[in-house]
Each structure stands twice: as structure tokens, then as C-alpha cells.
Design a protein around this nucleic acid. Structure first.
Lengths: 208, 208
DNA sequence: GAGGCTAGTGACAGCCTCTGACAATTGACA
DNA sequence: TGTCAATTGTCAGAGGCTGTCACTAGCCTC
């Protein structure tokens, strides 16, 4: 940040990212070429690929930020909480600060629109799911450490995280395909689903 | 099958698929070009893309077959079983016939090796996860229908399937990264994990 | 069984993503 | 200000994928 050089780099990256998201969300991801993006910022194509390993990375950059924010929130949870409770609280509370975190890079509105593009673009969805998987691994390690367990031998941390993530992805999908919710609606959806997991697993629904 | 024409097509497809898997599993997915594959079968590159929408599709073709087989197994479950039990039984029993199903297209050994390649190749893993997601949707619809529910309004079918799939993916990963198991070991792993889901969710592990 | 019909293939040509190599530029710092 | 290092541009090229068009080989009818 101190250097003019660093500031310039920062600005170039942000300009590229913003231009990319803007184009992806209006014209569509597939119908936007990297050349389109660099033309909007007026840099060479080579420069784009110096900032982003590939086209996907630019498309997922904002979501990536949100995910990292959430992982941090889990790390900050008091150690006495039970695993599932810690995860749940992390989402609920992480949401409050999410807005600012995102806004520091791109307009939240752009972030939200991009979410829908990801969910409806096969290649991006695939990449997103893979990243989510990696995050699950991280979470499992965090949980295991909290509980003083070894991830390699005890499957419980991974199981809890897998269940939790399953619910989270359900929420994502529900949110992105439904009527346009804000961040708040998504939070309450998450909570609601998490409450239903136990009963849903517990067997026969037809006795209700 | 009746026509000579159809038989020829079938043979071309199988030859391409087998050559592709053979190359992917020995040389690696990324280090194998489509040109390599078509050279091994001696057809034009254009022909490859007439049989497979893209390179990924060829790589995932065998796994796709297995997945379809499993979905059928779920459909065949007697309607009185509880959702989770039906899913569990489908895996366990589907496994017995899986061998023959696969072998009718490619050697099982090749299928197993390909599984490891998928799990260790980011692009393929991403594509595989996306496909798995689509299968989850199908399963949720099946479960909902069994129970006479509407998937759109009742989240429970999706929840159960999400949990179940989470466990399955855990198993896949465990299997593919671990010591080389056979199909049998994978089955018992699945069963074992499914048994632990309930307890793992139930809260405080430190009271044990 | 000859000839028309059509499915399947090959041969280009071309777009787009991504990479390596090298030259040119621009900020940093003595 | 001059040297050094970091950033960018240019160029060339591989690899995945698509459209087009001509051609071949199986099919089907008369």
C-alpha cells in the first residue's frame, strides 16, 4: 500500500475484477471473453492472466473472499461450544460483517448478482463446488483441533462439516434460484434448515 | 445394434473411451491431449467431439454409468422403507451388480484407476462434484415422491439426500486417497460412516 | 442390384483460453 | 540522475472446441 507501485497494482486488479464481474453479470460468463474484459480496462490480455490464474478465478474472487471471512468466524468461536453450534453461530454472526468485507472490494450488489451467475453457469458451479470442498477440509481440521481429535482417525469432524455444508449449499441454491432475497433472508433460511436436519434424519416422516 | 452402422458407432465410441481412460490413467488427464486419444484410435479429432461433448465427458463416462446404476437401485427400493434406509440399502445392494454393469463397457480395474485420477485432478473433481449435485436433485425428487411430498415446499427430502451424499463423498475421498481398497472395503466404509452420523450430530463428543 | 438417400466421418479454418519468452517501460532508491 | 527491479506489452504457439462442407459407406426402395 505504501508504494505507488503497490497501489497501482491494487488498482489494476480491482479494475479488472470489477470489469469482469460487471461483464459476467450482464452479458453472461461464457459470452464474455477475456479480451472483452481487458479491453474495458485497457491492459493487455497477458496482464489479466498475471492477476488471475484463469477466467474462473476472477469470477469466483468475491465469493472466495466471503468464504474466507466465514472460516475466520469459525476460528473465532469460543472453544466451549459444541461443533455444530460453533458452525451455526459463525454463519449467523459472520453475516453481519460480511457486507463491509465485500464492499471493500466490489459493490455488494455486484457480488449478489455474481452469485446467481455462478449458480447458473455449469463451469463456474463446478469450480465453486470444488472450492467449497477444500473449505470443508479446512473446517474439519478446525473442528478437530477444537475437540482435540485427529482428523485422520476420527471421522466425526468431517461428518459434522459434511452435514453442515450440505445444508449450506442447499441454502445457496434455494436462495439463488428463488425470488431475489437479500442477505438477511438467506441467514434465516440457513437457521431454519439447520433446525430441521435432526428431525429429518430421524426416520419416518409419515407419522406426523 | 441391429444395423452394421449402429454397431460400428458403438465400437468407435468404446474404442475412444477405452483409449482415453487408458491414457488418462497412465499419462495423466492434463498431459493427455485429445489428439493423443484420437491418434490411438485413428479417427479425426472432430469425431471425438461428436461422441463426447468435451474431454471431461469421456473421463467421467464410466463413473456416470455407476451413478445411474445407483439411482436405479434407489428407485427399486420398496416404498415402506424410511428414506435414509432406502438410500443405504441401495448403495449396499447396488454394489453387488455394479461390477457387471461397469465391465460391460470398460474393465473394472480401469474404472477404479480412473476414479483416483478424477479425485486428484482439480478440473475433473470439479466436474464430478457438479454431476453429483445433479444426482442429488434426482434423488431428492425420488424420495419426495416415495413419501408423497412436494420437493419445492418441504426441505426434508433434500436435507436427507444432502446428508447422505455428504457421507458418500467422504467415503469416495477416503477410498481414493487411502491404501488401494477394492469395492468391498468401500462398501463397509459407507455403512460405518452412516452409522456414525446420528451420534456425531448429537452434540458434545467430549463426554465420551 | 442399381441408384438415390442419409448418417457418419474427415478436413479445414477459426475462436478462445492459457503459457512461455523476451523486450519495453516505469517506479524505487542510492 | 543513473542503475536496478518490478510490471507490463508483444509475439508466438499449444490445446480445447465449433461450424462448415465435401465425401464415403451403409441403408432402403424400386
Amino acid at each position: 500500500m505504501e508504494n505507488l507501485r503497490q497501489r497501482k497494482k491494487q488498482r489494476t486488479r480491482e479494475a479488472l475484477l470489477r470489469a469482469a464481474l460487471e461483464l459476467f453479470t450482464t452479458r453472461g460468463y461464457e459470452r464474455t471473453t477475456v479480451d472483452d474484459v481487458v479491453a474495458a480496462v485497457d491492459v493487455s490480455q497477458r496482464t489479466f492472466f498475471r492477476y488471475f490464474a484463469n477466467k474462473e478465478e476472477a469470477a469466483l474472487a468475491a465469493v472466495e473472499l466471503a468464504a474466507a471471512h466465514f472460516v475466520d468466524a469459525v476460528r473465532a468461536r469460543p472453544p466451549h461450544e459444541a461443533p455444530m453450534e460453533a458452525l451455526r453461530q459463525a454463519v449467523v454472526e459472520g453475516w453481519d460483517s460480511l457486507n463491509d468485507v465485500i464492499e471493500s472490494v466490489v459493490p455488494v450488489e455486484l457480488y449478489l448478482r455474481m452469485y446467481q451467475v455462478i449458480e447458473s453457469t455449469p463451469v463456474l458451479l463446478a469450480a465453486h463446488l470444488r472450492r467449497s470442498m477444500e473449505i470443508e477440509e479446512t473446517l474439519a481440521r478446525i473442528i478437530a483441533e477444537r475437540e482435540g481429535l485427529d482428523v485422520a482417525t476420527d471421522p466425526r469432524p468431517q461428518l459434522v462439516v459434511a452435514v453442515f455444508s450440505g445444508v449450506m449449499r442447499m441454502t445457496e441454491r434455494q436462495w439463488s434460484t428463488g425470488v431475489d432475497y437479500g442477505l438477511d433472508a438467506m441467514r434465516s433460511l440457513t437457521v431454519s434448515y439447520l433446525e430441521q436436519v435432526g428431525p429429518a434424519l430421524a426416520g419416518d416422516w409419515r407419522t406426523d
